[in-house]
Design a binder for these strands. Sequence first.
DNA 1: GCAAAAGTGTTTTCACTACACCCATGA
DNA 2: TCATGGGTGTAGTGAAAACACTTTTGC
Lengths: 234, 234
Amino acid sequence: MKLLDKAHMYEGQEKFLVAVDCIVFGFDSKEIKLLLFRRRVEPLKGKWSLIGSFIKDYLSIEESAKQILYESTGLKDVYLRELKTYSTIDRDPGERVISVAYYSLIRIDEYKIESVEKYDAHWFSLDEVPELILDHGQMLEDAITKLRLKTKYEPVGFNLLPEKFTIPQLQIFYECIYQKKLDNRNFRKKLLSFDILIKSNEKDKLSSKKGAFLYRFNQKKFDSFIASGRSFEL
Amino acid sequence: MKLLDKAHMYEGQEKFLVAVDCIVFGFDSKEIKLLLFRRRVEPLKGKWSLIGSFIKDYLSIEESAKQILYESTGLKDVYLRELKTYSTIDRDPGERVISVAYYSLIRIDEYKIESVEKYDAHWFSLDEVPELILDHGQMLEDAITKLRLKTKYEPVGFNLLPEKFTIPQLQIFYECIYQKKLDNRNFRKKLLSFDILIKSNEKDKLSSKKGAFLYRFNQKKFDSFIASGRSFEL
DNA sequence: GCAAAAGTGTTTTCACTACACCCATGA
DNA sequence: TCATGGGTGTAGTGAAAACACTTTTGC
């Protein structure tokens, strides 16, 4: 079998337009936010949309997503996970486009305003999301469901909070996700029992006069926590 | 804005070959099995591979997956879920092909031997899987991880067992997934406490002289079980 | 009558829940 | 001094885990 023949094996097969769309979540220590963009090109120019683009021939789809995220937020190495492909033949009324959706969790305090402004972007709180183009509303819904599910077994909150965060901040994040109040004593007790945080001596006084101690996430300890077979659920 | 203009908006954008691959799981009341196919076309003809094909221009990717599954196993309406897209630019050494992987759970007693033979297929137990083409080994690994995770909150076992099954059969499935022995008293107690099974008067005597009662899954009761906010974990 | 799998209850253990007050500080 | 959010302990409840013997029947 000659490998070189292979280039011809797939001739005659139809090819497709392939895009990525990113659902970008943030958290401002009060509520979960969504980053949306005004579409800059026809068709549907000016409508609110997820950030997206056609994929590049020299990049994997994930790399394409990373690149568009970098361009539009100035952030590298963000938390990025595949959500789902959207491929109904008429989802784009003009021409068939297959879109692979990714969701991303970013630190709202770190994104670059310049990039965001250049792309005509805006943070929306989840209950004030405007109408979105195409099936982007469905993508968002699916992403929220997935995020909620994922939160049950993975410490996603640390990707949204600043590198140094307080326990009350983290609790508010979980309250947003689960959409219910949590008991602060029980929350703190369980969280600290996991022994995956590093306490600092600094306090954050932005949200109280007494101030709350700042912590960092300890990836190493978390890894061995998981390796020991325990499950992360708050 | 004229909608008809849109057909031209995407001109000049590169198009890609898009395929689906299906990881097909079965369960023979002893162990979890994987359905593999000998590739019928060059390149790599004769090698073991997941079942797959290029997608159709008149079908969504999921529909394409359903169709190839129907052709190769004779089964319709099977449990089918998207796994992940595989899109590194050199994953297929001949030409760039983007593949969307799906995993499927089928009743090993229901698939059509004719279709399977026509496609040169074979059931392998998970620890005797031969080397697979391209990144199909990676796909399988990812699918097993996902299946294991999914089992924790969804009753996937019922899709693999025959329509009428015994509690010991179901327990063996969970023992396979979790890779550990379970206590039969605790298993039975918890399972029955969910009240989502219908007991029949028939017994299955294939695996014991005493015989074990056959049960069916009650989808309606399961739906209200979930609606009541409880979580399915065995 | 015996081998082989099905089926059955109770006790212990541990994790989750509910619950209320003091602390530190800036204004 | 008071308003605000941060931080702490304990008792009670319920679910999971550990554990061993009897039943049925084909051979």
